[in-house]
Design a protein around this nucleic acid. Sequence first.
DNA 1: TATACGATTGACAGCGCTGTCATTTTTCAG
DNA 2: CTGAAAAATGACAGCGCTGTCAATCGTATA
Lengths: 354, 354
Amino acid sequence: MTMDTSPQRPRRAKIDDVAELAGVSTKTVSRVLNNEPNVRAETRERVKAAAKKLSYSPDLSARSLAGQRSYMFALFYDTISEGYLSKFQSGALDRCRDRTYHLMVGRFDVEAADVVEQIVQAAERTRVDGVLLLPPLSDHPHIGERLWAAGIACVLIAPSNPQGSMPFIDLDDMNAARTLTGHFLKQGHTRIGFIEGHTAHGAAALRRLGYLAALEDAGLPIDPDLLVQGWFTVASGRLAAERLLALNSPPTAIFASNDEMAAGAEIVIFEHGLSVPRDISVVGFDDSLLASTASPPLTTVRQPIEEMAQGAVDLLIEVNRKGVAGYDVTAESRRYDFELVVRQSTVPGFGEKA
Amino acid sequence: MTMDTSPQRPRRAKIDDVAELAGVSTKTVSRVLNNEPNVRAETRERVKAAAKKLSYSPDLSARSLAGQRSYMFALFYDTISEGYLSKFQSGALDRCRDRTYHLMVGRFDVEAADVVEQIVQAAERTRVDGVLLLPPLSDHPHIGERLWAAGIACVLIAPSNPQGSMPFIDLDDMNAARTLTGHFLKQGHTRIGFIEGHTAHGAAALRRLGYLAALEDAGLPIDPDLLVQGWFTVASGRLAAERLLALNSPPTAIFASNDEMAAGAEIVIFEHGLSVPRDISVVGFDDSLLASTASPPLTTVRQPIEEMAQGAVDLLIEVNRKGVAGYDVTAESRRYDFELVVRQSTVPGFGEKA
DNA sequence: TATACGATTGACAGCGCTGTCATTTTTCAG
DNA sequence: CTGAAAAATGACAGCGCTGTCAATCGTATA
């Protein structure tokens, strides 16, 4: 006489169930699930069918406890723009899904004395297979090192000064700035104001270099009065624009190091009774949401953030595939191309009129 | 004679190491770490000291495999504004850190035929202790149910129509809209235009109700011409504003159901040679980044998104503490207060001048 | 047909913790 | 001071997988 236990939730399928249904050992099921070689094609199919029938999906905790892989990556960040984070995260999740990985997130204070320990510990206790470090964490001199030293793969995203010793993903900020400046030059502008970004931000310096390089390419002199400091905020953009407009010979075009500052500049120009782009052209940088909603919409440069995130995840997967020990860093890093987005804040053919 | 193995990474401390150093069994260490009762104070201290000395932190995979808790929550979403996601995530992470929980994220297509299965499976295989469902996932009729049925706690964030049967966290959208409209009324406005939000968004309907209720409170008639459809985008806000300005008797104030549409309205008003707030006052909703960068900065309503996220995490922790089976839903749900943010797009005392 | 060798498969241990339950120690009434 | 109950602690199994290594199968070669 059998005891029938009270009705309860249908138990989630385990590897043993699949093994039994397929008539093989759990180890063979494991082989199939992990795409290991040396399984007869017929057996492989049988196991796959059984797994599907039971809608089996391996338990991540058990996997990571028993094996080398956790199928989980971590995305760590500190303060970063909402748009950048959400786009990057979205791109990373897309690729993770494709490769059946999962993603955990964490926010850490770069300034904390023990950031490194906090991060390494978080990565170790969760057994993540790799870590994505967003700026400004990617600029920290030790986080990446310590992670690799602990045997955890890690990619620096847009580090200010990429070290050859660690894989990274970034954008060619300098060339983008050079192109944007070139856009002005082609339209005949010769007095181009430049609003610098936050001094602690590596990309800000690169954008400045691109601006200077473009002027040099064109054989134009550099007027120090045309470079004013900003801090990546709308307010700082307004202040900087005020200073540029107050010059004896104000610029006919303004290059702001990001969209926020560009939007601030547009407002100030309007307040001075001038018009963008008729009187003064403006460009931003980043192609944030603000760029398309500003009035007029900003000509800017788009970073392929989602693609960069996907590339970063691919890179982590690749490193894990080869084994965290024997990676060839130099071959892994990648620099992405930007895209010039022309909108109504710059007037095409301005120069031709002259 | 001892063999010295080649130099290698210092091994991460395990519970056995702590037990040995403290001179107790691993089970006692476990008790201390999990704040279980029945450990002598002196023993507790000894264990804590040992753990600290070895900078021990328990392995999450092992924990979740062996015990009931994984110390990991999941934040699942689909399309949602960048600001909402990043603020919510940030708030959730803050609380998770305080309570030594971790957070994984996932993005799912609400429209997919098998969303429910995808989500349940993702939650089961990662053994998360609870799931936070952001809109529009929180509006799906089955996701929450299935999660609870599978024994996984879950909180709906800002669901369009909260079910009594499931814990949720939301904002009193209707009252917020009523307050915002009241702000206009107090300034003496009597013709107030309303730009509606996306019809599929539950909050849009609530905001409309709040607007209508405020007019009724004031004994004002409702003019159907003053209500125009929008879709939560800047472009739709522009279109709606055009229609309002084209009326024989245009409104002296415009209530847009979100900041994007309000910003669009401001641009249109400016293009018509009118001034905000001198000629027409405007309010938005959400207090997004755009609200403070629009020109002029928008009077709007702020949602305490971070706090709501913290509340949601607390709720999950609470449910887990009591056991997922015996929760009292009605006691858990919580409605948060909004905050009126007055900026330069509305003119205080407008009415008094009359 | 017999032998060797690679391809395929399975037995079994164990990853680092916690749940269960037995055992020891302490406490306190009588 | 004794016994019983409560408090404190530990022994041990096992969570669901994968790594190791031994066993078995298939087949090409002599």
